[in-house]
Amino acid sequence: MTYLLEAKQLRKQYADKLALRGLNLQIAPGEVFCLLGQNGAGKSTTINLFLGFVQPTSGAAFVNGLEVATNSLQIKKHLAYIPENVMLYPHLTGLENLALFSRLAGFRYPESELLTYLTDAGLPPEAVRRRVDTYSKGMRQKVGIAIAVAKHAQVLLLDEPTSGLDPKASNEFSELLRRLSGQGTAVLMATHDIFRAKEVGTRVGIMREGELVDVRPTAALNAQELEQLYLTYMN
């Protein structure tokens, strides 16, 4: 089987800290893999390794079969990224930000299509032509989601994407993820939100001190059981 995301014995050692200890992970098309864990558990390092922003100390990360370390530019065509706190260019409008990032990814959309991406992501139509420095964190997050969706990537890397979103927007985001995974997109989402992970994830992995200590299909657990499992590892 071809995995869209794969980690083989992935290890990252910083000067004073072992951030990742031999991670093995495969994520297939249409799968939503949620990484749970405390701050510093290695979730963001994992995402940065898949993005090629940090080099592994040993092991390898693959995106759509391409090794990230040696194909750092090519792999970016296959993936989209939404950070915890989407920061955009404050002097540009939401529409201009989306147009810019889409152009950089190789897509030149007409304005009507850009507007559709933004409103589909939940941004109020009256806000699209306002400068981003007037946006709330949630509004910026929605533009970030629109940027990721407009890239039509096969892989979504999400680092706490619902942080700052109101419950309605979070639900809309969950719906969007379900729709994208239904279209074959592979999703790796780092989150603290156990209930969101249970809701949208097909599998959850629990990370502790740089190690993936447990992986379960979400269908096998209810929310309380997942929370209990998580707390067990955290204690």
Binding site: L51, F53, M87, G106, G144
Partner: peptide
Amino acid sequence: TGTLKLLLSQGL
């Protein structure tokens, strides 16, 4: 601000 990561993730 973190925009650099978003920028580079577009393939630049």
